[in-house]
């Protein structure tokens, strides 16, 4: 277990998350999972199965009630809020269903934002942001604001933002949920490309066709892992 958690991008060990809203609700009830480096994992499950809770825990947005979570070999359950925030900024890249871009910032500034909080200088930020935007095919949209971009382009900006700090894990929550099928497919192609470049991807979705782009699918049900499905021919 020890060696395994050090080698994995993400390692969950008996994670329990209980919400106390009058009656205790077990959102996650003893989940153990290894996400190896460079792997592509999809998490599926009906609503209320604990998908979002799992995302929040892995993304260091929340802390488990019980159990341990290792991110890039580091225990993130017993660190201060400040340290967790730092890990979140540097080791996790979020991609959301609703893109979540800053409306007043340009594409380049949005992508550079995570570096602002790491204290990286402006010139370096601008250069790196342009580089990453170029790598997701938006090299010609640097100075556009989100409202001047299409849905697919916005999601590309969000992906570039998630990649900019070279995170250990790319965490995507329904990344195609707000996109039409064709654009969604293009985004999935981009994820595949990122996977092939060696990024670790964990994606939550409720669409089977999207989940099938991954190497394996983790099926969640009532806060527990129902089964893990290995897919052979990746994404096709």
């Amino acid at each position: 277990m020890e060696t395994e958690s050090r080698n994995s991008a993400v390692s969950l060990d008996g994670v329990v998350k209980t919400y106390r809203l009058g009656e205790p609700v077990h959102a996650l009830d003893g989940v153990s999972l290894e996400v190896p480096r460079g792997s592509y994992t999809a998490v599926m499950g009906p609503s209320g199965s604990g998908k979002s809770t799992l995302m929040n825990l892995i993304g260091c947005l929340d802390t488990p009630t019980e159990g341990e979570i290792f991110l890039d070999g580091q225990d993130v359950t017993r660190v201060s809020d400040r340290e967790r925030t730092r890990i979140r900024g540097e080791d996790v890249g979020f991609v959301f269903q609703t893109f979540n871009l800053m409306p007043r910032l340009t594409a380049r500034e949005n992508v550079a934002l995570p570096m602002v909080f790491r204290g990286i200088g402006r010139a370096e930020r601008r250069e790196r942001a342009a580089e990453v935007l170029d790598s997701v095919g938006l090299g010609d949209r640097l100075e556009h604001r989100p409202n001047e971009l299409s849905g697919g382009q916005r999601q590309r900006v969000a992906i570039a933002r998630a990649l900019v700090n070279d995170p250990a894990l790319l965490l995507a929550d329904e990344p195609t949920g707000n996109l039409d099928t064709e654009t969604g497919e293009q985004i999935m192609d981009l994820f595949e490309e990122l996977y092939e470049r060696g990024n670790t991807i964990l994606m939550v979705t409720h669409e089977r066709s999207i989940a099938e782009h991954a190497e394996r699918i983790v099926h969640l049900l009532d806060g527990e892992i129902e089964r893990i499905e290995q897919l052979s021919g990746v994404g096709r």
Binding site: L61, T85, F117
Partner: peptide, 16 residues
């Protein structure tokens, strides 16, 4: 609120 959430998600500390 949402912008604050975004900034926190990408690593903004409380003091930021």
């Amino acid at each position: 609120t949402r912008e604050i959430g975004i900034m926190k998600a990408v690593g903004a500390q409380r003091r930021d």
